[in-house]
Amino acid sequence: MFKKISAYLVGLIFFFPIFFLISSAIKPTRDIFAIPPKILFFSIDLENFQNAFSQIKFFPSIIDSFIIALGSASWTVLIAIYSGYYLSRNNFKFKNLFIISIISARMIPLVSISIPLYFVLSRLNLLDSYIGLILVHSCINLPLAVLLMKSFYDDIPKEIDENAFIDGASKFFILHKLILPLSLGGLSVTFILSFIFSWTEFICAVMLSQMEIKTLPVYASLYKTLPSWDTMSVIISISLLPLFMLLLFIQKYIVRGLTLGSVKE
């Protein structure tokens, strides 16, 4: 019983900042600035929502985030379907080294690719463009997606491939017609995680696009020096909503996803 109570207490502590944010979004402004803080007993006032929705840049930045996350997740998964399958089914000479370099790509501090990419993208005229950010986010998410897809393919028995191969099917045929239908679950988990990590990525989004395109985290961070906590809380709460909804679908696989397929539940 003691164990259960303390476990719930831990849950509450970690949930509290999220609750605090959402409650700030629906509090009237004077309650946000009340001292002592009004944590549980406050009046509800939806005026903040009106203020937030009247911000001209708010909706465009939702759309920006959406296009970039959708684009980069699709591109990432498309690449990961094939390379993940190859890594799962084939042994080749430098396979270990290859996987190590994929993990090394995951280690790169994002600032140190953003600085050179700033120059590369400006040469290509891709600064401040959807394509530029979609490609950069894809590259950031590729190590995760490839290794995660590999781990899902590893769960499918190899005999399926071998039998089909003996029957004369080509490897592309085997993947497309036999293996992919079996790994749709893993595919969607990979897609959703890539989507989430593109949505949450901040530093590249800030450095490689500023004027035309603002993803939601970038847009929200502009509020850090403004005293309008009421509007900001609404904007932040709304930007979290799609993430929490997507989380519902992948909750079972989140550990596997975050460890790049290495720890299975």
Partner: peptide, 20 residues
């Protein structure tokens, strides 16, 4: 409940604590 924090954009988690 514990999975919730993992999908919050770090910049936005920072904003929540900026208020707090």
């Amino acid at each position: 409940v514990l999975t919730l924090t993992l999908v919050i954009p770090p910049a936005i988690a920072g904003m929540i604590f900026l208020i707090m």
